[in-house]
């Protein structure tokens, strides 16, 4: 692994070396390092033409983590990867994913990941994902993650996703189905600049009584970038659903928020909030009275907002 790859790994997974516990490191289209643990088994997919891994987490596994970072440093690589997570009943685990692309060539580099999560009864999953790209080639850096989430009775999943910088184009799709008493919390953060585009689509079916979803996206669209946020929540039982898009636009950045709530049950309680606007003038003024220049104030506000 060279310095560029080590840098990517640090950016997307805060990793300085081999992670603890189970992990799979994918580099330029191939699995290059892997470890299973007593309770977490990682195996390659065997189906013809389907690249990816299955991750089996034993029922009752507690306080363990899985790292599955992906890095691409070869220009012109396009990959489609399927990762399936089978999380056993009552398990409580942390999954750290992340993708870093370094493209200094003229060809586009693209990573598309399809993650499917089967969250067992009363299992608890925290999923943390960071996307980052750099390199000064004219080839685009593209990431299109899809997440399919099935949460069984009493299970819960918390997804923290961050697109830090440098991704030219992304379309993020998250679909979830929640059974009785299941809960899903999503915290998404996206920063776009240059001519980047980011589309993020959530579609959540609250099928079971007491199911709850809370989807919050915070984003900043700077320079000439464009973002689109779509959140569909279907309340099919006595449930609660909340989606929120909180966006700051700067320069010529543009943002579209498209909420869609459907209550198919009289006891479904669904809320959507969306706020799009530039940084409040009084916030800038306040920080300037503390001695910051306007630009420094802007940076502090954005940094805090996306923290």
């Amino acid at each position: 692994m060279d310095a560029i790859e080590r840098g990517l790994l640090e950016k997307v997974a805060d990793l300085h070396g081999v992670p603890e516990g189970a992990y799979n490191l994918r580099e330029n289209g191939k699995s290059v390092a892997r470890a299973s643990s007593a309770n977490i088994e990682i195996v390659s997919k065997t189906e013809e033409g389907k690249s990816g891994i299955d991750i089996f987490i034993k029922p009752g596994t507690k306080n363990e983590s899985v790292h599955i970072p992906v890095i691409l440093s070869q220009s012109g690589l396009h990959e489609l990867v399927y990762n399936d997570f089978h999380i056993g009943e009552g398990a409580d685990v942390l999954i750290i994913a992340g993708c870093g692309i370094h493209n200094c060539g003229v060809q586009d580099s693209e990573h598309s990941g399809v993650h499917t999560f089967y969250v067992g009864k009363n299992a608890k999953v925290r999923y943390v994902e960071k996307h980052y790209a750099d390199g000064d080639g004219s080839g685009e850096r593209i990431m299109n993650p899809t997440s399919e989430v099935y949460i069984e009775e009493g299970g819960s999943m918390e997804m923290e996703t961050t697109q830090i910088k440098g991704v030219d184009s992304t379309r993020r799709v998250t679909r979830a189905k929640l059974a009785k008493g299941a809960s899903l919390v999503v915290r998404e953060k996206i920063y776009t600049h240059g001519k980047q585009t980011a589309a993020t689509e959530f579609s959540v079916d609250l099928d079971g009584e007491g199911a709850a979803a809370d989807v919050v996206s915070r984003s900043v669209a700077a320079e000439n970038s464009h973002q689109e946020f779509t959140a569909v929540i279907n309340g099919n039982a006595k449930c609660t659903g909340h989606s929120e898009c909180d966006a700051i636009i700067m320069d010529n950045g543009t943002v579209t928020a498209l909420p869609a709530l459907t209550a198919n049950c009289v006891d479904a309680e669904l809320i959507h909030e969306a706020a799009i606007g530039k940084i409040a003038g009084e916030q800038l003024t306040k920080l300037m009275t503390l001695g910051l220049t306007e630009q420094q104030a802007e940076e502090q506000i954005i940094q805090g907002f996306l923290k």
Partner: peptide, 20 residues
């Protein structure tokens, strides 16, 4: 010190005091 202090999402009390 403002009559109506400004609120910030994500900036902590310590961040603000540090800036000051």
């Amino acid at each position: 010190a403002f009559q109506q202090p400004v609120r910030f999402k994500g900036i902590t009390v310590r961040d603000l005091l540090s800036i000051a």
